[in-house]
Nucleic acid binder design. Structure first.
Lengths: 226, 226
DNA sequence: CTAATCAACATTGTATACAATCAACAAAAC
DNA sequence: GTTTTGTTGATTGTATACAATGTTGATTAG
């Protein structure tokens, strides 16, 4: 079993479960249940939950505890817009140090993506898609920016859980390969453009502005069922 | 006295003291002393310190406690580079909703800056300079970006404490007014350029790459003192 | 039968007690 | 005299106890 994990390990386990949609947005995260599951006191769990709350992965309401964050439509737009602004900007920085080894590493990752797609392993697919983006960002020589991008990628996974269509994740799976090709061929501007349009495409695949989520018209919904 | 402040208030008080260099980089932040000062248990203090640690304002070393973060030269460069990238990008977003009221508000803030400069109130000056930048960013319609900029501004205050020359803060004090003028006159591109060069100027005023900080040559330093 | 009130339970918030770790100083060995 | 080792004191790490709050379900009045 999970005997005696340290705080960091607990953090990663919970984060992974959230990113992979095993714990969906809105899910309660009761301290004592988690405390029991990890074999640690509530104190340690609280610490982890507070960290996740600051990273906007979970929300903590006073006296109501922690829930997996359910991003609002506005939050979703802001996060995607930020990524559309930032990730293309980092491409030139990344290409300054782009090497054969890098290319090989990312191509291997894309093989895993294909594999996950073939296995219909949705969890792995979501995780790998995010990983592709933030490991790329990590190759820039600016870890401050890279950390921020990583956070945005994790939060994007929540967005997909709430607003994503079936296609949101899978349809761009072959696409990532195109970027690596462009980078191998030193096509700076094209790579930058590609990244921008890739993210715009993801944003437009989200079901934003379709409904207000809460305001469901039950009358209409169950109109002709009898 | 400070009877019964909530966590948020404690957080703000400590953050303010750090930003204003009352608590300089490297300063120890012992839990029990703070606990005594604020009249709360160590639990509350720990929560605040952990938050500040995630925001990179303080560092927590296991079994050694919390210290005000002393940014490395690399961290300083990364943060300034990030600001040089991002803040100009937000200018067009800000100008979309720029109003007379905004202009008035910021002009008032600049009066305070001038006042602080006249009084040689270094603490207020640092705080107001940072505030100018992050309140401007907050006018964009992207709070995700705005929050990130705010964090970078706070961290910049630490950078100035470590690498800043006397001029770092004060010399750009009149400058901010130029930006407001440009924005009032709808000079988008010039405002963007101005912001970029303003930040580059701040970066270049830092004493980066001068010494390694630690490796002091005492032989050379005290060569001809006798 | 519906609505409101109250009681019991479950969950989080806070403080404190105890264990573990580290730092500094003193004493002893080389 | 220098280095090593050991002991003491201070500080952080963790768990738990108790208080405060929220939620649920039952009981009673309308």
């Amino acid at each position: 079993m999970n005997n005696m994990l340290n705080d960091e390990a607990i953090y990663k386990k919970i984060l992974k479960s959230i990113v992979e949609h095993q714990l969906p947005p809105g899910a309660r995260l009761p301290e004592d249940k988690l405390s029991e599951a990890f074999g640690r006191s509530r104190t340690s769990i609280r610490k982890v939950l507070q960290r996740l709350a600051l990273e906007r992965i979970v929300t903590i309401e006073p006296n109501k505890g922690a829930h997996v964050n359910r991003p609002s439509e506005q939050e979703a737009q802001e996060i995607l817009d930020s990524r559309i602004m930032l990730e293309p900007l980092l491409i030139p920085e990344i290409m300054k140090y782009w090497s054969k080894a890098n290319s090989k590493y990312f191509r291997a990752m894309l093989k895993e993506e294909k594999q996950a797609e073939a296995n219909e392993d949705q969890a792995a697919l979501i995780q790998l898609t995010a990983q592709f983006h933030y490991e790329l960002a990590a190759l820039s020589d600016n870890s401050v920016m890279a950390d921020f991008i990583q956070q945005l990628c994790y939060r994007s996974s929540l967005i997909i859980a709430v607003f994503g269509s079936r296609h949101s994740v899978s349809c761009d799976c072959g696409d990532h390969l195109e970027l690596i090709d462009l980078m191998d061929n030193k096509q700076d501007e094209k790579a930058q453009d590609w990244m921008k349009h890739h993210l715009i495409h993801i944003k437009s695949s989200l079901k934003l502005g379709v409904s207000d989520g809460q305001k469901i018209n039950f009358q209409q919904l169950f109109a002709n069922t009898e």
